[in-house]
Design a protein around this nucleic acid. Structure first.
Lengths: 342, 342
DNA sequence: CTTTATTATTAAAACGATTAAACCTATATT
DNA sequence: AATATAGGTTTAATCGTTTTAATAATAAAG
């Protein structure tokens, strides 16, 4: 079993000190070392296939060139997509990404943050869970750079990059109203979080603006731990209650997918029996027989902005919080275009 | 700006040596250190909120407790799902995951591997790209533990975990034949890779077994860099050529999604106009008006097996190669059940 | 009252790199 | 000839931890 080649090995082989080798191999430009020695060191380094040990370098420099990304669920295509964009972005800047999923659990998130801090990551990009304010405060106390994405805590000043959830929800619900719906069910999840609050607020604002009376039972909050059941029950309620709705707005893709399944299962036709719109994109939306109207979040911008803010913060800490609100695009398709169908 | 708390700080505060502190904090059980001292060190450590520096630990121990995962594209739900499973598995074992995407490019993959090696990852889980044999050989030479998943190189002995692609493809194509199709188009991608070879071989074997004559133009290889175009053209060819097919087998989900879009676009009805089946699961498959027949890969088993093999190899290297072939499940739905529709 | 065993603690080296400062040596300057 | 300057290289400290081997202190044994 060959040992790893380290600077010492090269130094010994060439007959110089470790420092000299280090200078040649890292500060190539600097030219402080004589020509022949430089050449010989480079030659030997290549021959022995020297590979630098970034752990040692990190210990010395205090920088790991590593970024921790915490999403709620990497297997959710929405977050996977964000992760991929962030990955590309940080890789290009010479960073490596450590990805983890919190499953919307504050405790898991806490563990991940602590673990990655021990690993000395240079910074975090986080999709914060409910009740994780203390974790964010902790990062601030410890002066660890971080950027929140998708959601944030209005009462805690921090960098964040989110979409304009209020306006997007407003527009999409307005679209539902304009196609003739006056009774609209809204499925949400994680209502204590900023993004959901905003989406709900936007949806209701649209209804109020159009002078619709809102029945509180039309708002269904879905529990993270019992999505399937809650959605099945919620949709049945919405459609068979005293005051049935004619349209449903799903406030995220993870609600829409099982939701649409349920609608299929009930044998309802979209958009004739029921009108549908959703937040987030999903490959299933386009393939559906009645393609789903949705709010398309600019994931690429979101990821890039977050990385940019984070790396700037890492490079020069403490120069004011960047708080970015991105515009989302509403994509209107058949699922909410009764006008076109009839 | 408070500095980080290190062992030295605790030592100074308590009035003992660094070594003593280290003993107490890492070998808690060992009890070599006196009771009162132990108690005091623990107390001070808590007070100062000491957090161990895992980088320093890694340098000393030569272990980083870090695993590199290289998939072809994290934004592909198939790989995202695998990544999530692997993440859960390694997290539980105290490892952290570094995830990267190779985009099916050997060069990218090479860079990622080198980069992660410099970072001293303890091992790799890799979805190998075409022409990356040298990278695999390199890892073997350097004695870096790794496990290949999804595909492998038959000529290079190594750990790997894959599904039984041959049998799965055989079965699904046989299903297409049994529902009355004699002319079946096959869309593949990355044909030099083991999994695709096996899927193609299985598909053809099924056709031969049932004495169908196979027209070579029915086999369409899709280029990674021009998926949309190739698929559009391929499907048009298949359906409008001299010898049009009545069924299409998509050899992966990344072919099926754009493929089905194209089928929709052409205004063809599934399964009446055309029968469809695919490899891999996808949330769109179930939601499609004519749910797609597919091969369901046991991703959970695949991920868990890979992690298990890798961590065992890390713990005790060089005890023979584990080569696992998992059975996949065929899920027959309407897209290939003409019998049920008529 | 030595000697030996036992317990508690620490000094120091090591992991693999970086880097400020010191140290030669040879040439240029006065 | 004495001194300054520059070029080339090395010494040694440092990052935060672990761990071997040594030491000091105390108790038990002879």
């Amino acid at each position: 079993m060959k040992k790893k080649v380290v600077l010492k090995d090269i130094a010994k082989e060439v007959g110089v000190s470790i420092a000299t080798v280090s200078y040649v191999l890292s500060n190539g430009k600097d030219g402080r070392i004589g020509k022949e020695v430089t050449a010989k060191i480079k030659k030997v380094a290549k021959e022995l296939d020297y590979q630098p040990n970034l752990i040692a370098k990190s210990l010395k420099s205090g920088k790991t060139n590593t970024i921790g990304l915490i999403v709620t669920d990497l297997s959710n295509p929405f977050y996977a997509h964000i992760a991929r964009i962030i990955e590309d972005e940080v890789t290009q800047l010479g960073y490596t990404l450590m990805v983890s999923s919190s499953d919307e659990k504050a405790e898991k998130s806490w563990n991940l943050i602590k673990f990655l801090m021990h690993r000395q990551v240079d910074g975090f990009i986080i999709v914060p869970t409910a009740e994780s304010e203390d974790q964010i405060e902790h990062l601030k106390e410890k002066k660890i750079p971080f950027v929140l994405i998708d959601r944030y805590f209005p009462e805690i000043p921090s960098h964040h990059v989110v979409v304009d959830n209020y306006t997007s929800a407003y527009k999409v619900v307005e679209n539902l109203i304009q196609t003739g719906n006056t009774k609209i069910g809204i499925l949400t999840q994680g209502n204590s979080l900023s993004h959901m609050k905003e989406r709900t607020r936007g949806a209701i604002a649209a209804m109020e603006k159009h002078h619709l009376t809102i029945n509180p039972t039309w708002l269904k909050e879905i529990n993270f731990d019992s999505v399937e059941e809650d959605i099945a029950k919620g949709i049945e309620d919405l459609l068979t209650g005293d005051d049935p709705v004619t349209a449903i707005f799903f406030a995220s893709n993870s609600l829409a997918i099982p939701g649409i399944k349920k609608v299929n299962h009930l044998g309802l036709k979209v958009p004739t029996d029921i009108t549908i719109a959703s937040f987030d994109q999903g490959e299933a939306f386009d393939l559906y027989y009645s393609p789903i109207t949705y709010v398309h979040q600019p994931l690429s911008d979101l990821g890039k902005e977050a990385v940019h803010i984070l790396t700037t913060e890492i490079a020069s800490p403490g120069s004011g919080y960047q708080q970015v609100n991105l515009n989302a695009k509403m994509v209107v398709k058949e699922s909410s275009r009764k006008d076109l169908i009839f």
